[in-house]
């Protein structure tokens, strides 16, 4: 089964307590919102970080995407709060 790297940034990273992990990639039609909900079901910091998906943003293979995007053949998923650079 193909692997998916997930990377976390800012308070998402802090709440979860890790900056990266690898999982078996779910079926290609699974949306990011569905994947995030399943990660949140792990409880603990995941439940806390993913309690309100409207506060989350994502990138697939280093491109910003909306949470209703299917995971497809993604290799790297990033989950983070809205950016605050500049």
């Amino acid at each position: 089964m193909a692997q998916l790297s997930i990377v976390y940034f800012a308070w998402v990273r802090e709440m979860i307590g890790r900056d990266e992990e690898h999982i078996d990639r779910p079926a290609s039609g699974t949306t990011l919102a569905e994947l995030i909900a399943s990660l949140g079901a792990r409880g603990g910091g995941y439940a806390q970080a993913f309690a309100d998906p409207s506060r989350l943003r994502a990138a697939v293979d280093q491109h910003f995407v909306s949470l209703d995007t299917p995971i497809g053949e993604a290799r790297e998923l990033a989950i983070f709060p809205p950016v605050t650079g500049g």
Partner: peptide, 12 residues
């Protein structure tokens, strides 16, 4: 600078 603020992956 407007686009860097809203579209570059930095967090403060």
């Amino acid at each position: 600078i407007d686009w860097l603020k809203s579209d570059a992956p930095f967090w403060k």
